[in-house]
């Protein structure tokens, strides 16, 4: 079973057994897609970004030491991919992520949800869009089960305590924006 952990699979990829990346892809593709999508990218861009993360994993596989959690390493890479994409998109005047959030039709996104929940989701997305990119990213990362605060801290490059405080404050800000939008 030890051979099947994310870390051991990535170490095998590092040693040249590239096929094992397929297993990691199957395990994490939905998480990564959700990460990019919830950050405000449209589905097609989110899919491209997922692909870019795995391309980067292959490119930088030698930098994986196996000491930290694979999830932290992966999301750190995902953040960089997202950042690079938007930097490039801004230069070429491609529509920004925040505008995507606002124009996206919630009805297409949450087909299985009740109408009330759909409304809340749409409102929540609008509130999220008004947060700074850093805070939005932080809150999206807390969604992923298995990612502890210590790993979240590793991803964003701060202490565990600081990560908790930052998430707490981002949540509080989101709550404020959400209520304003609800009243308005």
């Amino acid at each position: 079973m030890q051979d099947l952990t994310d870390n051991s699979l990535m170490l095998k990829v590092k040693k040249g057994d590239l096929d094992k990346l397929g297993l990691l892809y199957e395990r994490h593709k939905n998480k990564l897609f959700g990460f990019f999508y919830n950050l405000g990218n449209n589905p097609s861009v989110s899919e491209d970004l997922v692909q870019n993360v795995f391309v980067r994993m292959l490119q930088y596989r030698s930098s994986f030491s196996g000491n930290g959690a694979f999830g932290a390493w992966m999301f750190r890479m995902a953040r960089n991919v997202n950042y690079d994409y938007h930097k490039k998109a801004a230069k070429t005047e491609v529509s920004s992520s925040s505008s995507n959030i606002e124009i996206r039709d919630p009805m297409n996104d949450e087909l299985n949800e009740g109408i009330e929940t759909e409304g809340n989701n749409a409102l929540l997305r609008r509130a999220m869009a008004q947060l700074s990119e850093e805070k939005r990213e932080l809150l999206i990362l807390t969604k992923y089960k298995g990612l502890k605060f210590s790993e979240l801290a590793e991803i964003i490059g701060c202490s565990e305590g600081a990560a908790k405080v930052r998430v707490h404050r981002a949540l509080k800000e989101l709550r404020g924006i959400f209520l304003e939008l609800e009243i308005g």
Partner: peptide
């Protein structure tokens, strides 16, 4: 707010 974020879903790729 925490729970609404946890419930935030996304379509299938």
């Amino acid at each position: 707010s925490w729970h609404s974020i946890q419930k935030l879903n996304s379509p299938e790729p």
